[in-house]
Nucleic acid binder design. Structure first.
Length: 576
DNA sequence: ATAGGGTTAG
């Protein structure tokens, strides 16, 4: 009688509270055989993972009259499915310690957990048990092994397991295909793909995205045309392929042609516009996107931050917090937001952001720490920046560049140059941003020879100096009084020099009071950046230094004319 | 039970 009542209860969706009551009944009446049903129901009906739930289930399992393998298997599978990989692994170990024989789904879930955490040691341990318990004939377990070694990049082992499988399903094929594609081994992948007896949409999608990631849109497109049925992931793989190779027009064509656009499509498209600097189009899409989630907010915030519009990045961030949907920012949001604070030079805001991160329990990974290095360096706390730099698990080119630039803008040129050498010793290849930092450092020290040498060394790394790099060299040469050399360098530029380059030359001419070159530089500045009055003042000062008062007067009038031409109230609008 | 598509730092 009570058994049927309990069974009825257990087949309902149970809350944690109801489960505790049922559990009490189970204990009182020693219906231990119902415990697996209880655990199973609890996990199946739960809305998701929570710490309380885990603790409760574990307490049932630990105090169960007889340890039972089925319940442990349910728990491990549940944890593995809900991304709690570490917990899944430790539950697996605990079950082992109880002397229980694992089920096939406990083993495959444990393998999945090891694969996702890239736990090679744990994975091999479970693998050893697979043979011991005689799961060599189980497709699911064997497929999980193929998946494990594929994710770890150990393709020889993956292939061996795959070859020895007594039977395979399409998931087994997809798992090994995934492994070769991850290693960018397109030849192997192509051969394998052609051998798959019954390709499903995932096989096709994996292959398409493999080609797309390798930049081979021709083959990707061919497969896309050939495939029997497409889902939104197929379209998205093509879309992000075009985005990655910078073909935003084709990406947009695809976006407009898609039968159904998913959240992913919108975000990929916004990211595409962001990368090619078309902020307006990105913004337009974002506004058209009806209900926004964390990832679409992240994409738009990143778009503004990466395109030098920090204020708008912060506005979107505020909009996200106050939208009423209770979207919680994650480490990706904060990476962009910290970058925005840095661009604004706002350490106060930055500190507030750091506090929010602590409150949310967001751990500082290397990505975030690098953003913080930049923030602290730009705001003058160079020691804090170096502390963060030292705390990095792995120092990559981005981290080094941030730190080198940090030293450079804080006038610590010697430290910047030293760090650059340290980076070379660590066999990390510099890129163009690294050289921005290094050249900034040289231009602060006035070490012309060394600066010039490092500028010329860029090509040894396969780097082409940008207009900004030329600008820094002009600044370095100019400040040191080599005005002719600076002017000649501009003349050799393969691209159109922008106002900043001529501005650096003009500034140097003011420092050394050179009228002849100063006039040339000023003429270009007027033309390239007609809205700014600063250039006229500089030239006027140069004229004054040599007593050409008529020209001085003419320049001053030009400055005043500009000032009065401004729309009244403009600066008020700008400051609100 | 096993698989695929999106957002982050200089």
């Amino acid at each position: 009688m009570i058994v049927s009542e309990l069974k009825f209860l257990l087949n309902q969706r149970l809350t944690l509270k109801q489960a505790r009551q049922t559990h009490a009944a189970v204990l009182v009446h020693k219906f231990h055989h119902l415990q697996p049903l209880l655990v199973h129901q609890l996990l199946v009906s739960s809305r998701g993972y929570s710490f309380d739930l885990l603790q409760y289930v574990k307490s049932i399992l630990r105090h169960a009259g007889s340890p039972d393998s089925f319940s442990w298997g349910c728990l491990i599978r549940f944890l593995s499915q809900h991304g709690q990989f570490r917990e899944a692994c430790s539950a697996y170990c605990e079950m082992q310690a109880l002397g229980l024989c694992p089920s096939t789904f406990a083993v495959s879930s444990a393998l999945r957990a090891c694969a996702r955490t890239e736990d090679i040691v744990g994975g091999r341990l479970v693998h050893a048990q697979v043979n011991k318990y005689g799961f060599s004939g189980c497709v699911y377990v064997q497929t999980a092994l193929v998946d494990l070694y594929s994710r770890l990049g150990e393709m020889q082992t993956a292939q061996k397991v795959f070859d020895e499988m007594p039977e395979r399903n399409v998931v087994s094929w997809n798992s090994i295909l995934f492994g070769y594609l991850r290693l960018r081994n397109l030849d192997m992948a192509r051969n394998l793909f052609s051998e798959i007896p019954e390709k499903d949409v995932i096989s096709w999608n994996s292959m398409i995205s493999g080609y797309a990631k390798a930049g081979d849109m021709k083959h990707a497109g061919e497969l896309f045309q050939q495939m029997p049925e497409r889902n939104s992931a197929s379209w998205n793989a093509m879309l992000s392929g075009y985005v990655d190779c910078g073909n935003i027009e084709l990406a947009r064509e695809l976006f407009d042609a898609m039968p159904q656009r998913s959240e992913v499509s919108w975000i990929a498209m916004i990211g595409g516009y962001s990368k090619c600097g078309d902020v307006e189009s990105a913004c337009l899409l974002f506004d058209q996107l009806g209900k926004k989630n964390l990832l679409s907010y992240n994409a738009m915030i990143a778009c503004y931050a990466q395109n030098g519009r920090p204020t708008e990045a912060l506005q979107i961030f505020n909009g996200m917090i106050e939208c009423g949907l209770e979207i919680v920012p994650d480490k990706i949001t904060f990476s962009s937001i910290i970058s925005a604070c840095s661009q604004l030079g706002d350490l106060k805001l930055g500190s507030w952001i750091e506090l929010q991160m602590e409150k949310l329990g967001i751990e500082k990974d290397d990505h975030l720490a690098t953003a913080l290095i930049d923030l602290h360096a730009k705001c003058g706390s160079i020691h804090k920046a170096y502390e963060l730099f030292n705390s990095l698990k792995k120092k990559d080119v981005v981290a080094y560049s941030a730190m080198i630039l940090g030293y450079a803008v804080n006038g610590k040129a010697v430290d910047a140059i030293q760090l650059f050498e340290e980076m070379a010793d660590a066999h990390i290849c510099p890129n163009s941003v690294t050289f921005t930092g290094l050249l900034t450092a040289y231009s602060h020290t006035g070490l012309v020879e060394e600066g010039y040498r490092s500028f010329n060394s860029m090509k040894n790394y396969g780097l082409v100096p940008s207009a900004d790099h030329y600008g820094m060299m002009v600044d370095l040469l100019g400040r040191a009084g080599h005005l002719e050399d600076a002017y000649n360098l501009i003349k050799t530029m393969p691209m159109q020099p922008h106002a900043g380059v001529w501005g650096a030359l003009l500034l140097a001419c003011r420092l050394h009071n050179n009228v002849e070159i100063g006039e040339i530089a000023a003429r270009h500045c007027f033309k390239l950046d007609p809205d700014r009055a600063g250039y006229q003042s500089l030239l006027s000062n140069i004229y004054a230094s040599v007593g050409r008062w008529t020209d001085v007067k003419q320049m001053r009038e030009a400055v005043e004319e500009k000032a009065s031409a401004k729309i009244p109230g403009y600066s008020w609008v700008e400051s609100t």
